[in-house]
Design a protein around this nucleic acid. Structure first.
Lengths: 381, 381
DNA sequence: ATGCCTGTTTAAAACGTTTGAACTATCGGT
DNA sequence: ACCGATAGTTCAAACGTTTTAAACAGGCAT
């Protein structure tokens, strides 16, 4: 047993153990092209020694020398939001075969941390960065640094192509339309809507999609039944807000047979609030979410929602990045700043049990919370 | 503007820009003790230059030199399991102030990946490893390598002190007892149980806790109402199994007024199954989960469950590791293999809406699925 | 003997930091 | 005029790799 000074087994240790030079050992173990010229017997002896000592090459030294970290920084705004996880998973899946490691960092929805995280990523010499940001993230001087150091970057769930950053996100307009069309086809005419926070990117286009689909279906919204989430902090806050709004809906006395919520968590809050008031879902009222996040699938009733292909979005982002890295690599030319890419992926309606045709006549157990419809309903086509 | 060969700004660049030597620049920017002796004017000029160029020290070079990676490898068995996230969060929280970065890796419940991940962690020279493993993870030769290289390790959610690895996990026995006692205090006597998979660590002690509490309360289980999950693969499988078992429960014709599920996802499956069969929760039947995972809180009705303080568990693990690293650091002595630490943290009952006293007399909308109780019920003390 | 292949192996430089030791001035004291 | 201090700055070596170019040993033809 060799007495090592530091804790880890190094090339020197292996070299000493098998009697060859460091160079030879390196060539063999890294399977460099030169290893073709190494005598098979030598190869064998080197490998045996390495295995015996439990040698693992030092990624730091290797990266330092090769100027490649084989790492992509992934900055998630909040890992405890079930929205993030599938995206991260997708990124991982795409990175795996290319032997890249995601350096996953959770900004915990704190602006201050965001900066620190970006610094980390830059210091660790990530070859690319993916930012998962559904929330407000203003530009920071760090962003300039990312540029300055020529690190390619993709943002998920927000369109920043206008600032030169490639973006992959869901087609919010189509998604909003999808949700509304589903409700109108079921026969709903009086629909309450909870819009997203003003500062959040998705809010506006999603609402636009809803409105245009509503226009086409001849549906008008009762302004008293249109709500808007305040800026949201953390995934539980959506639930709380939904709960609150559902109570307001019932309290304001306007008739409605469906609620279209901004996202799944808000929708789940609405489900809770309505249920507690004795409204049965979907018999008395339908509830729709958006995102198709894990809790939406395991809730009862299962939440009808508009699915974002989060995993695919993550994969897309990762693949763009890999491609950018690869194409810049050989020429060593400057970043080759092409125009930023944009992918608006198509959302998909997932029908579960929380949506159904509106009630024909209202039951008596509703204490007048849901005023009777004044128009006879048409069954969905 | 200096023309750099590689993409990143280095000390040399800064040195050239401000006219001082690399050493001086390094001393200033790393705020080494020697920087006391540097003239304030120099300091100023160096800092300005660094900022202007967007310099970030190269963590790789730094680590190589200092032999410290400031990194803890975190190997999660499956990030898409909501069980993992709070633990990871706790780890992060504990690591932050010590300026350690978690190197988060997701093994995606695949054995093969597990090995690759461990290799990654070793190569990246993590100074410690935390394994989050609620699932079967047999010993692998990698574990030996971890040893050989003297990397301290903690495992969360499994007791491996017998193999010399420090462990932090919930007191499953106490948790099981807590759940059962809650039901018995509400007056339930006929309780269906879904036990954990045979190969999973938590299953046995949790069941033991349930049994001993049942004995004390004078409750006996109907063997036909005791189920056992098969080995589980992925977080959705728990839900599916719960759904299936709930149907079996109803089909077998034995009376029960409560279901005690192995974990929250299984419980949510049960809720779905019972609800679909027209059983109202909690009026006709109570359902209990375990873990207090995010979906349990946002489901309707909110799931009564036994909470694992996951975040605290993560913090505990991280703190042990930091301590081990710190205490080994100065002496450069051998790993100082003390006996492994063990922390069984206390679980906590979280009462939500899915539990209530058993029904006095059974409603008629149950189609005989829940046969009538033969004993008059006592209200919980 | 010298020169030139061919097939193996190695020396040495480089990657970007940090740091103990060495180098300059400058100055007060003898 | 010389010796020490002291403040300010720089040299050079090291961390563990990878890789270019060179060294080395035989064998064969000149």
């Amino acid at each position: 047993m060799v007495q090592r000074k530091s804790g880890h087994v190094t090339l020197v240790d292996v070299a000493r153990a098998c009697g060859f030079s460091v160079s030879t050992v390196s060539i063999v173990l890294s399977e460099a092209p030169l290893s073709q010229n190494i005598a098979p017997s030598t190869r064998e002896r080197v490998q045996v020694a390495a295995r015996q000592l439990g040698y693992h090459p030092d990624a730091y030294a290797r990266s330092l020398r090769s100027r490649r970290s084989q790492t992509i920084g992934v900055l998630a705004y909040d890992l405890s939001d079930p929205f993030c996880v599938p995206i991260v998973r997708g990124i991982q899946a795409a990175l795996q075969p290319a032997c890249f490691l995601p350096l996953l960092i959770d900004a915990q929805t704190k602006r201050s941390l965001f900066d620190a995280c970006m610094t980390m990523i830059l210091e660790r010499r990530a070859e690319g960065v993916i930012v998962i940001a559904s929330w407000v993230f203003e530009e920071t001087n760090l962003l300039a640094d990312v540029r300055k150091n020529g690190v390619p970057m993709v943002i998920v769930s927000r369109d920043m192509t206008d600032r030169g950053i490639s973006s992959v996100l869901v087609d919010n307009e189509a998604g909003g339309a999808l949700a509304l069309r589903h409700l109108s086809q079921l026969g709903h005419r009086r629909i309450a809507v909870i819009r997203g926070p003003e500062k959040m990117f998705d809010s506006e286009p999603r609402w636009a999609g809803i409105q245009s689909a509503a226009r086409k279906a001849g549906i008008r919204f009762d302004p008293k039944l249109v709500f808007q989430l305040p800026g949201l902090a953390g995934p539980d806050s959506g639930f709380e807000e939904g709960l609150l709004f559902s109570r307001q809906m019932l309290a304001c006395g306007r008739p409605f047979t469906a609620v279209l919520a901004f996202d799944d968590l808000t929708a789940l809050g609405v489900v809770r609030g309505l249920t507690e008031a004795g409204v049965r879902i979907p018999d008395d009222c339908s509830v729709l979410g958006f995102d198709d996040v894990f809790p939406a699938a395991v809730a009862t009733p299962g939440l009808t929602t508009v699915r974002q292909p989060l995993r695919d979005m993550g994969m897309q982002a990762a693949e763009w990045l890999l491609h950018a890295i690869e194409s810049r690599d050989p020429g060593a030319g400057k970043p080759l700043r092409k125009s930023p890419l944009l992918s608006k992926v198509r959302p998909e309606l997932v029908v579960r049990q929380s949506s159904a045709p509106p009630p024909r006549n209202l039951g008596k157990n509703q204490k007048g919370a849901l005023p009777a419809l004044d128009t006879p309903l048409r069954q969905g086509r």
